[in-house]
Amino acid sequence: MGILAQFVFCGYMLAVCGGAVRLSGVSVSSRTSVVSARGLTKTYPPGKAGSAFTAVDAIDFEVHSAEAFGFLGPNGAGKSSTMRMIGCVSPPTGGTLQILGMDAADSGKRIRARIGSVPQDDLLDPELTVGENLLIYGRYFGMSRIAIAERSAELLEFARLTDKADARVQALSGGMRRRLTIARSLMNTPDLLLLDEPTTGLDPQARHLLWERLFELKRQGVTLVLTTHYMDEAERLCDRLVVMDHGRVVATGSPRALIDTHVTREVLELLIEPGTGAAVAARAYGVADRIEVLADRLLCYTDDGERALARAHERGLGGLDALVRRATLEDVFLYLTGRSLIE
């Protein structure tokens, strides 16, 4: 085999073994800033109800290339408004927003050409087939029919929907629609993928399959920005995240760092009768470093859950159902805002 032939062969093998489907325009090695927000604000004008509403209140954050970055918070925290601004479909009313090195205020069209968007609602056309939905989307990006056909075949394979290419969207399950929406968002080989509540409303099996596909994208170097109010999703998928509440950022960091910084390593949960929280908390005082009273539970924050449980037994609380678990982002959120994530 000549030198040129060997070179071509090696290149082919690298393409095959290194992931035949190139899904992102960004290489894994670069760690430049993809999104940079300073004092980012979104205020909606007064509606029929009366007063103006500030959904996003002067937040700062930075997303680096090839990382999975999350916005965590309950409904109404300002996550979706932030995503719409990053997606350049809703202009900021204050602050600065740089995306892929361009100003969102005046380069919306060029930015949108380089991002993929997975909205909360699938926004698929149920009357068209799976393939036609991809065709339409590819055309919006100015792709040729041949390029769309090739890309569609790759993405349907990636989304495990190849055998559904000619099926009407209305015949797909919720999980399949979600995977199709993700496949569609990758039509233009985006440098940045936005996912707004990607697994809301899906059953556990569909969620895990979707996570698997998102992990695959991460492995291939796609920069992911996602919103969620599921703490397990945020912990699994996100390299870094911000916790939002009432339009503000209340904490930033990796999931582990947030847990280490704001709560103890373990939590002892004591299940209580509704209405008895204050009395039981008084008896449990000193069992752990800190105690939170919820409607049906006492959360006792401690670095040693078993020891706290033993102390609870000593205080005569052995009759209550108890559970020792590691602390999660839910606990972080509860600590930072005094509210549960899902209300």
């Binding site: 479909v89 069209k109 949108r112 926004l123 056309d125 919006y140």
Partner: peptide, 15 residues
């Protein structure tokens, strides 16, 4: 509306 086709189009380079 929220799930309408204009929302899909305007998330792409279309205005």
């Amino acid at each position: 509306r929220r799930a309408g086709v204009y929302r899909v189009a305007t998330a792409t380079p279309l205005s």
